[in-house]
Design a protein around this nucleic acid. Structure first.
Length: 942
RNA sequence: GCCCGAGUGGCGGAAUGGCAGACGCGACGGACUCAAAAUCCGUUGUCCGAAAGGGCGUGUGGGUUCGAGUCCCACCUCGGGCACCA
């Protein structure tokens, strides 16, 4: 919509134009790379450099969520966070920090595979081209990455260790007593020694080899299970719970997802549920993200209660065992296994019909009619253990098989859903609590009562809650009674399910697992790693009609018999095995990438422990002076990974921590969610998006090829046809202008609309800055002959103090504003005083890195300024001799006085009352009260 | 329904309880130019006023305070997340 300002031919030769910026930037980027300026030294190993390390007493690990390298390249929305982390990294280097900062690529995944299917080109070819393009674009932005540490998840040298970590998880079990993962060998040893008993009491030696394998496999943290999973025929693969939307469709592709029992790889993340919640307290993350993680894990405390019935005990989970006296019926999920046995002959037909209806409307419909509850009675009954009464058992689809036990005790007076259900089917609703402002006659109630209130009708002789007023106490007493009488026990449930870890795809990490003739899985020995993805030209996943629920997944790797069938010696002689033909989900590679950055070329270990301790270990005194529990010092990325990536990565990290490979409990100590860049998108009359760059505005109306179009705002991207390429902006204005613009738009965590029109503001700032120091005709340094006057000195040091604070707090927008303000002051002086140039250039350096380097060189330095100390404010120059006080009368400013800074309050008072404007305003009235805030203001109350 | 956020000029936004609107864009006026662009200088919350000056102003209504954009209560609107979770 708006074109870049054109620099006229007769403009001064060394004006800071887009072309000059580009020349400067490319030159410095080459030099940085050539000199290895941003190579961060490790304390040991091949990247060790004791000389460099000596000058950098503190470490700082700054991390971006690494991108998927898409074929369309970066748009200006992508690097928002990257620019922020770059500025922070550059600033920290100037304050004696050894900064770990690089960028890798999360390059397995569907789009590259899709491209391969369409073109027949191997996905690695396209992926490598995309990675190369991303690297070029990121380099063009002047990001100060250590290029030696950049990794791609698709590189066999990388995924070799992803496979290795998988095997660590596979070869571990969760010891609930020690509350940590341990090697599977410890479990076997415990069984062998008899310290751990088998379930049927036989000794370990008495079990057959197959029985032992089954026991051991049943404890592994990565295990093959035959359980209900999310089958997505449209994608031709199973997907994780986290990848299914609320309305039962795939996150990617929006295809229907069906619950089907299938044999698939699972990760026992549920073993870590409590620690994943508890350790959130260690982290500096926003409450919003912590809340999302807690929500997703969904811990509920309560009790399991067993209700005797003719079909055996029906076990329910409840968070309100204290309301057991009010449980007047039970509801089972339609799929509950006891339904058949509970159903009486006369109810059989209705039950069968309801179950069929429920199973038919599993996806979208189930959402729609959530308002009106439905259900049928089974005719069967169960015994309420506290009252001894027989209560009817119903089935209803508001009870979900996938949560708790798939059965509930219904307490209509104390649960809104049960209340509605009881009202609908005329079931009794006895009150068991006395609501503070209601009667015990529940027919007068509009809703169930939930909260603290005295219990009534809640006694059976041995358990008496009557008169107790606290739910917590009632719960506690009931739990004790249940346990004592064998009717139940305190229990905790979670919404979190184990993580479905296999995908029927080609472009992912192959499982380093083979199956013996009996179908038992065996991990490959280290010597077999990496298990390289086999070459083929048949990448296509087998996909199905999206609604074809009963189709079955077929892995592309399954077709490669030359690869799947192998002869191996796993310690007991050469035998025939069949390889696992699944691949890992895209999340696998991103579960540990930050660790590989630390030691990217290590072929013996995924990371050298000494290197890991240095960068990730707990810090008694972190970068900000606070102790921190270890992990990445600053992790920046979008909120879209609030549950998926962050939960999975925390889980893997904790397993590796338990196994003794890592020194921090958590991978990411401080998380910062940057906002999104939004952009105007335009639709024509057919509601189709048109290329936003081609739209012109006339008098508030927008036109595309002469036709009017409508405007809306959305996340920048290909689908809305509103992407702006950073390459174009760098070409027209330079990367420094782009960096400044993105940061100046607003606070880093806020989303904001992109306006190409506004970019020129930062361009002008850099142009003025340049002109204040450089002769536009000759390109030579041209500073004022004189040094700074006192006012300028003071403003400089106020600016230094402010910019420093802003940099620490990631407030780059206000840091830029302060620098512009100071530069505007220099412009008024007619140029830059000699003694101001260096501090000014150093302050600008983290933001406009290339321009600052160029000016620094012109100031006579041959070294890069990357490690020059950031200016420090002189506190003597932060105070002034005189202070201007605003004088308020009744809270409104009516005048100003300027008085010596050290004048005491009584003097300020006298001066305020003597000010002619104030005198006029008071018109002789006597002040009732006079407030002097030293150094701030005066308020006169009349 | 529940849990997070956020509401400030024409626009993006700034403001340890202390002069609301820093900084940038745009707009308007001027300089340079044959002209335009680029660049430079100035004005720019709004209303009244020729001006000096004054009234009104941070989603709405209350409250605390000498003083509230900022703190408290209630509400409205918008954005995000979760949602028949027992």
């Amino acid at each position: 919509m708006t074109s870049a300002p054109t620099t006229p031919d007769d403009a001064p030769k060394f004006r800071y134009s887009g072309a000059l910026a580009q020349e400067i930037e490319l030159r410095w980027q080459d030099r940085w790379e050539h000199d290895g300026v941003f190579d961060a030294p490790n304390p040991a190993g091949p990247l060790a450099d004791p000389a460099k390390l000596a000058g950098r007493p503190k470490k700082l690990f700054v991390l971006d969520m690494f991108p998927y390298p898409s074929g369309t390249g970066l748009h200006v929305g992508h690097p928002l966070g990257f620019i922020g982390t770059d500025i922070y990294s550059r600033f920290k280097r100037m304050t004696r920090h050894n900064v770990m900062y690089t960028m890798g690529f999360d390059a397995f995944g569907l789009p590259a595979e899709q491209h391969a299917v369409e073109t027949g080109e191997h996905p690695a070819v396209k992926t490598n081209a995309n990675v190369a393009n991303y690297r070029r674009q990121l380099r063009r932005l002047g990001l100060s990455h250590d290029p030696r540490r950049s990794v791609s998840t698709t590189d066999p040298g990388y995924y070799r260790w992803t496979q290795w970590i998988f095997l660590q998880i596979f070869n571990s079990w969760y010891d609930t007593e020690a509350d940590r993962a341990r090697p599977i060998g410890d479990l076997i040893e415990a069984y062998q020694s008899g310290r751990r008993a088998t379930t049927d009491g036989r000794s370990w030696a008495e079990l057959s080899a197959q029985e032992r394998a089954t026991v051991v496999d049943g404890h592994r943290l990565a295990y093959v299970s035959d359980a209900p999973v999310n089958w997505c025929p449209g994608l031709g693969t199973v997907v994780a719970n986290e990848e299914v939307t609320a309305d039962g469709r795939s996150d990617r592709g929006n295809f229907p997802v069906f619950k089907r029992s299938m044999r698939q790889w699972m990760m026992r993340i549920t073993a870590y549920a409590d620690r994943l919640i508890a350790d959130l307290d260690l982290l500096e993350w926003t409450d919003a993200i912590k809340a999302m993680q807690r929500n997703w894990i969904g811990r509920s405390e309560g009790a399991t209660v067993h209700f005797p019935s003719s079909a055996g005990p029906i076990t329910v989970f409840t968070t309100r065992p204290d309301t057991l006296f009010g449980a007047t019926f039970m509801v089972l999920a339609p799929e509950h296994p006891l339904v058949d046995r509970l159903t009486t002959p006369d109810a059989r037909e209705a039950v069968a019909k309801y179950r069929q209806q429920a199973s038919a409307k599993r996806d979208i419909d189930r959402q729609d009619d959530t308002r009106q509850k439905t259900g049928v009675a089974t005719g069967g009954t169960a015994i309420n253990p506290v009252t001894g009464e027989a209560i009817p058992v119903w089935i209803a689809d508001y009870v979900l098989m996938g949560y708790g036990t798939g059965a509930i005790m219904a307490v209509p007076c104390g649960d809104q859903r049960d209340f509605e259900f009881a009202r609908l089917y005329g079931l009794p609703i006895p009150a068991i609590q006395q609501p503070p402002d209601g009667s015990l006659d529940t027919s007068t109630w509009d809703d169930a009562f939930i909260g603290d209130a005295p219990y009534v009708n809640s006694s059976n002789g041995s358990l008496d809650l009557n008169g107790i007023t606290s739910v917590a106490e009632g719960r506690e007493l009931t739990n004790r009674w249940l346990a004592a009488h064998g009717h139940g026990e305190a229990a905790i449930t979670y919404k979190l399910r184990d993580w479905l870890f296999s995908r029927q795809r080609y472009w992912g990490e192959p499982f380093p697992v083979v199956y013996d003739v009996d179908g038992n899985p065996h991990g490959l020995p280290d010597s077999e790693l990496p298990l390289v993805l086999p070459e083929t030209d048949s990448f296509s996943p087998r996909t199905f009609d999206p609604d074809d629920e009963f189709s079955n997944p077929e892995s592309p790797l399954d077709r490669l018999e030359w690869w799947t069938d192998v002869e191996l010696d796993l310690g007991d002689g050469p035998k025939h095995y069949r390889r696992d033909t699944n691949v890992m989900p895209q999340w696998a590679g991103s579960c540990w990438y930050e660790l590989r950055y630390l030691d990217p070329t290590n072929e013996q270990q995924f990371v050298d422990p000494e290197v890991e301790r240095y960068w990730m270990g707990p810090q008694p005194e972190g970068h900000d002076g606070h102790a921190h529990p270890g992990g990445v010092d600053l992790y920046v990325g979008g909120v879209e990974h609030a549950v998926l990536h962050l939960l999975y990565a925390r889980f893997w990290h904790k397993v590796l921590f338990d196994l003794g490979y890592l020194s921090s409990k958590e991978p990411y100590y401080r998380l910062f969610n940057q906002g999104y860049i939004l952009a105007a998108a335009f639709k024509d009359e057919r509601e189709i998006y048109v290329e936003a760059t081609e739209v012109v505005e006339r008098d508030g109306t927008y036109f595309y090829e002469g036709q009017p179009v409508t405007r809306e705002w959305g996340k920048m991207g290909k689908s809305l046809k509103n992407a702006v390429s950073p390459d174009d902006i760098c070409q027209s204005y330079g990367a420094d202008t782009l960096r400044l613009y993105e940061m100046a738009m607003g606070p880093l965590d806020a989303s904001r609309p992109w306006e190409t029109r506004d970019v020129v503001g930062m361009y002008r700032f850099l142009q003025r800055l340049w002109r204040n120091m450089v002769d536009e005709e000759t390109g030579d340094l041209a500073l004022l002959d004189s040094d700074a006057d006192l006012d300028t000195q003071r403003l400089l040091h106020r600016t230094i103090a402010g910019v420093r604070d802003d940099m620490e707090a990631l407030r780059f927008n206000t840091a830029i504003a302060k620098l512009i303000e100071f530069n505007n002051h220099l412009t008024k002086l007619g140029g830059c005083p000699g003694d101001v140039a260096e501090p000014m250039v150093l302050m600008v350096a983290p933001l406009a890195a290339h321009l600052a380097e160029e000016l620094w060189a012109k100031l006579g330095h041959s070294e890069s300024l990357a490690f020059q100390p950031f200016p420090v404010a002189d506190s003597r120059l932060l105070v002034t001799d005189t202070v201007e006080y605003p004088i308020q009368v009744n809270g409104k400013v009516r005048g100003h006085i300027t008085v010596p800074a050290d004048l005491e309050a009584s003097g300020v008072e006298a001066a305020a009352l003597a000010d002619p404007k104030v005198v006029a305003f008071l018109a002789g009235a006597t002040p009732k009260k006079l407030i002097v805030v030293p150094g701030r203001m005066v308020n006169i109350v009349v």
